[in-house]
Amino acid sequence: MFSEFDEARLDDPAVLADYDDQLRRLATAGARIRSEALDARIPADLTMTPRGVIVAGAEARLIRAVLEPVCPVPLIAWPLPGLPGWVGALDLVVVLASEAEGYQSPALMATVAEATRRGAQVMLAAPEDSPIAQMISSQAIQVFTRSDDPTAAAVAVLAQLHNAGLGPIVNTENAAEAADMVAEESTPHRDLSSNPAKDLACALADADPLLWGGSVLAARASRRLAEAIRAASGRHALAADADEILEVLRHVKPHDPFADPFTDEQQRRTVLVILDDEHSGEAEQQSGRSLRETAQRSGVRICEIGAGQGSEVDRYITLLMQGLYGATYLAIGLDGQEGRLGADG
């Protein structure tokens, strides 16, 4: 037997009040993006022509995904303490440490210390009074963060990297507006009939979802959403490439609509969640068509999350926030029962 999802909880003011902290944090994502973009200190005599870029810390892979197609120099996301042996004075080291886990991290402190020792240019996103911020020199690019939101800090860093000629245009106000628009559509004050995030939660109510993103950034958003679903429900949630998901879909057992939930062994339904970036290439669009066709043949429900318009970063924020709202409403409908039971996620 599985814990029962109660969709009435999604429109119950008393229940929603119990989740006010989580919902308020989602609603203020746009404000955090604006706040993080306010305070960046760049040395007046700085000339930015690095030999290579090394990114470390929270959302390093997001930075890499945005920069990689256009960055004029080699770029890596570095997951280990310290730095690769080849990094020197001609390189730029970007460190994102807006959360306590980051700015108190011995590994990231070792990265900053090593970059400073080797004379590399450092860009640091962290609170001004944090231990890691005290380690940088006056020649560092300082993006002082005011919240513990790694995505907001990443958007601020991406804007500075564009200004340095290393990445695409990133308009922080547009990114914030993208988050605001999702918050308006997904507010708890909108009932289930007109709330796409609550509708997504209902679709996931008795499901083990398969998630696929139709571009590099949409794929990253799908992985973030899978993590959120696992945390909210304690269930399986798989974000993978199209070929892997196709193989799973081909082996899905048909759902028995006549099964007795009280006497028959129950399995959760498989649901395909497509994070649809309409600006993806032809190969990704063909993969999306194959997934939809295979899911339909297998009797698998398809849920689509649209990225809307705007830049790559705007569309990523739109996909991510819609997914996070949906995962939060899933937790509300379940009242965290399955997560508390310690189900495999």
Rank of each mutant, 00 (worst) to 15 (best):
G333Q: 05
A201R: 04
V248P: 01
R220M: 06
I132H: 07
A239R: 02
P81I: 09
E59P: 14
D260P: 11
E247K: 11
P79R: 14
P168C: 06
D18K: 14
R9W: 12
L334D: 01
A207H: 07
G82K: 09
I245P: 08
F144G: 03
Y103F: 10
A133H: 08
T263G: 13
D149M: 06
A140E: 01
A237Y: 04
G336V: 00
R297W: 12
A31R: 11
L67S: 05
Q104Y: 13
A176H: 09
I274G: 05
F258P: 13
L108H: 12
A259N: 11
M123V: 10
M181E: 13
P150C: 01
A97P: 04
D18Q: 15
D191N: 15
E244T: 15
G281P: 12
L166P: 07
L75W: 05
D45V: 09
A153Q: 08
E99N: 00
D149E: 08
A65L: 12
E128S: 10
T263R: 15
L46R: 13
P81E: 10
S222C: 10
M321V: 07
L80H: 15
Q296E: 15
Q286T: 12
P150E: 01
A31W: 11
T318I: 11
D148T: 06
A205L: 00
A164K: 10
T318N: 15
A100C: 03
R269G: 06
V273K: 05
P72N: 03
A218G: 06
A58W: 13
A218S: 05
L238T: 05
A120N: 02
A201Y: 02
R235A: 08
V273I: 11
L217G: 09
S290R: 15
D45P: 05
L26N: 08
G214K: 07
R25C: 13
A197L: 11
W212S: 07
D277T: 13
F5W: 04
S233I: 03
G102K: 08
G345H: 06
L166A: 03
A201Q: 03
E128W: 07
A156F: 07
L246D: 07
N174R: 13
Q286V: 12
G82S: 08
A156D: 04
R340E: 10
M48G: 02
